[in-house]
Design a protein around this nucleic acid. Structure first.
Lengths: 225, 225
DNA sequence: TCAACCCGGATTGTTTACAATATGAATACC
DNA sequence: GGTATTCATATTGTAAACAATCCGGGTTGA
């Protein structure tokens, strides 16, 4: 039965979600046995999941020591940010295809959820939805390969933001998302692209690469099936 | 000891090189036991390598049936091509940093090897070196993250070209590489970007997505340590 | 003749036990 | 008192045996 692949995907998704929502801090140790208990699984499957996540740069495997949530270096952080900016800005400037009515509807739906999360001061949901907005945009204007690439980049950005975020700043203005959609519907690619560039630069300006905080949280009931 | 990671990297590299040089055809079965013998390894390590490669879309794992060299669908092929074009064309239009003298030297060195391979009618070397030229370009003008992304895209393109290449065509003109470097040294980003677009479109025009050939080769001494 | 069925061999998937390694505390030494 | 060393413990890494699954050939029966 191919249900084992399903189970591994479930575990990987749970870990990724925890990283995305910044519950799992960079540097956290991920003991195999403990994860196996948390997810009602066994070491072998956990091991495969960790190997997969290490290929996505979310987890770092240190031989003989175990798995840890990755701690991207300042250089890696800069590279990830620049890469994401290149992809998203370029795609908006010259979309692979036009935004369909259905695509616009999907984006509006996400924006509505964003507004709701904002209302409820649900920071975790806002982070998640903001990522979903960008991913949907890429899927609609681009293709699935670009989407999966950006998917990974967004995950890595979550680690980066957790590590290097300056205090007293609020990243990723959701108001930009609204303006972005308006510009796209008006076929104003030049302005949309410029706005996306400003939007992503805004996130970068909230980062401070000088300090390297040792934010190593212990995973306990952070991870719930 | 961390030598096991080394060994797995060696095996993965050998498999990737075989795919890149188009010795390993899409659809080929990759039996664990056979690979373990070829690489003087054991099933467990082969298994981990295959899992890693499946994350890179080079290998497809079919539960209960085993590992196969991936057969990208026409849709996936189009998406990979479009993604690579987006990245490389955009990067040339607005390079992340200027081409250094050292970078130019590296590119010239690869071009010299390309000319040599062309002289010797070494098609395999030419394919490999062409990829290296593009990767070096991205590393010099962009960053390592973009490089590793493109690394995977080029591998996937190898599979795509093997599957869908039209007969009687010669892909990837190495003369373009020369012109590209000249334009970059002259800081003519607009023309360089345009040339790259034509260059990649040239490769795409050699493809025919209508036919789906069942090019399943048996791996025997194709893979040599 | 053809289709469905069944079974033996081969390959993959999983579990288990065991070996190797790193960690941290206690101890000995300077 | 501080530093180095040693040993017990916990965790990771590996190998091998076992179970499950898939594939192809052969048989049976309409």
């Amino acid at each position: 039965m191919g249900s084992s692949a399903r189970e591994e995907a479930r575990i990987a998704d749970a870990l990724c979600k925890a990283v995305l929502e910044r519950r799992l801090a960079p540097g956290s140790k991920l003991p195999e046995e403990e994860l196996a208990q948390i997810f009602r699984s066994n070491r072998a499957k956990i091991r495969r999941v960790l190997l997969s996540l290490s290929r996505s740069h979310i987890v770092t495997l240190e031989p003989g020591r175990g798995a840890f949530v990755s701690r991207p270096s300042p250089q890696e952080a800069r590279d990830v940010l620049a890469s994401r900016r290149l992809i998203e800005v370029s795609l908006l400037a010259q979309p692979y295809r036009k935004l369909s009515a259905q695509g616009a509807a999907r984006l509006r739906h996400i924006m509505a959820q964003e507004a709701e999360a904002h209302e409820k001061h649900d920071a975790i949901a806002m982070i998640y939805l903001s990522g979903q907005f960008h991913l949907t945009l890429i899927e609609e204007l681009g293709n699935r390969v670009l989407k999966s690439i950006t998917d990974e980049l967004i995950l890595r950005m979550s680690l980066i933001i957790t590590m290097y975020e300056r205090q007293n700043t609020t990243c990723c203005l959701s108001s930009d998302h609204h303006d972005l959609l308006e510009l796209l519907l008006a076929d104003n690619h030049t302005e949309a692209s410029a706005l996306m560039a400003r939007h992503l630069e805004g996130i970068e300006s909230c980062l401070d690469f000088n300090r390297e905080p040792a934010t190593t949280t212990i995973l306990s009931q952070i991870l719930k099936c």
